[in-house]
């Protein structure tokens, strides 16, 4: 007997691959098809036309865009991310260490925010309409409504300036003891958690409320089941798909969040690298960083969809 979920998962993976192709085309052309000649920018206005032409040839800039895209994409696939304009280093080397730092930040944030958000979201749904539920709702709306940099600056103002508990700037390479880790990561993680968790809470709550409104949840209640049993045995197993989706969508917001947070706290991650690259118009580096983020985002979303398919009892 073949599993009916397999073709669905396969088609989902194909869609992700197509999406990745479209995204890489978009990233490449958004950064290269636009005005301004790269060779001129690199060599400065004073460069001789011969020098510019030489560099153009060396960088394949005189070839059609489609060919350049193929060179670039081929490089990406073989692990060759190109060379940074700004400091002439292989981009792979620049990114590698930064990538690990960013993943640490994202990982810790996920570890904190997912359990927190699920607990708050599920309990709010169970106590729908209560004071607690309304408080959670108002709080999450409030947090969703303010930009991340405001949460970050408020955190700095409160913990670093007013209470003087924590340093205002993070340096991930100075973490030796656990208290150091706590001190360094506390504010970036706190800021990211606020943004990520509030959306997750809202979506989790909505997903559980929806399953609690189904006839089978009512049926369980009429069998004499307690509220807790209705939620745990009947609502939650059927809300796995939407909840996993909520987690993935919210965590994908980390991408936007880290850009702000790494800048404010001067955290040496990949987003900081990218913002700096924007300042120097270092296009190959920007392209590579963008692809790293897009691939991360796609992996999250695809994983969520695959889990949702596997969690659907009708496809067992």
């Amino acid at each position: 007997m073949t599993n009916p979920a397999l073709p669905l998962i396969a088609s989902r993976l194909v869609i992700s691959a197509i999406t990745l192709l479209i995204v890489s085309v978009a990233v490449f052309f958004a950064t290269t098809m636009l005005p301004g000649d790269t060779a001129t920018i690199l060599l400065g206005q004073a460069a001789t036309p011969e020098a510019v032409a030489g560099l153009r040839k060396a960088m394949h800039l005189d070839e059609p865009a489609v060919l350049r895209f193929l060179y670039w994409a081929g490089g990406l696939l073989s692990g060759d991310l190109g060379t940074s304009y700004a400091n002439d280093m292989p981009i792979a080397d620049l990114i590698a260490g930064r990538f690990v730092s960013s993943m640490k930040l994202a990982g810790i944030t996920a570890l904190v925010s997912v359990p927190l958000a699920l607990t708050l979201g599920i309990t709010a749904a169970m106590l729908k309409g209560s004071l607690y539920d309304r408080a959670v709702t108002v709080l999450t709306i409030g947090i969703i409504s303010v930009p991340e940099f405001m949460i970050a600056t408020s955190a700095v103002l409160f913990f670093a300036v007013y209470l003087q508990w924590l340093p205002a700037i993070s340096f991930a390479n100075e973490t030796v003891t656990w208290s150091d880790v706590l001190r360094v990561y506390a504010m970036p993680v706190l800021t990211l958690t606020f943004g990520v968790a509030s959306q997750m809470i809202r979506m989790t709550r909505a997903a559980v409320v929806e399953t609690l409104n189904t006839p089978y949840a009512e049926m369980a209640l009429l069998k004499g089941a307690s509220r807790g049993r209705v939620v745990l045995r009947h609502a939650l197993p059927n809300a796995v798909g939407p909840i996993v989706n909520a987690i993935a969508l919210s965590l994908s917001n980390l991408v936007g969040g880290v850009i702000i947070v790494e800048t404010i706290f001067n955290y040496p991650g990949i987003a900081k690298l990218m913002v700096d690259a924007v300042a120097t118009r270092d296009l190959p580096l920007i392209q590579s960083c963008a692809m790293v983020f897009c691939v991360g985002y796609l992996i999250l979303i695809t994983a969520a969809d695959v889990i949702a398919i596997l969690a659907n009892p009708r496809l067992r």
Binding site: Y216, E218, K223, H234
Partner: peptide, 22 residues
């Protein structure tokens, strides 16, 4: 404690009243 033991319920649409996950 009364529901299911003294009084019980047969719904209009059993298809919707059964939990698809069990």
């Amino acid at each position: 404690s009364v529901r299911g033991t003294q009084v019980s319920y047969v719904p209009q649409s059993a298809a919707a009243a059964f939990n698809p996950a069990q």
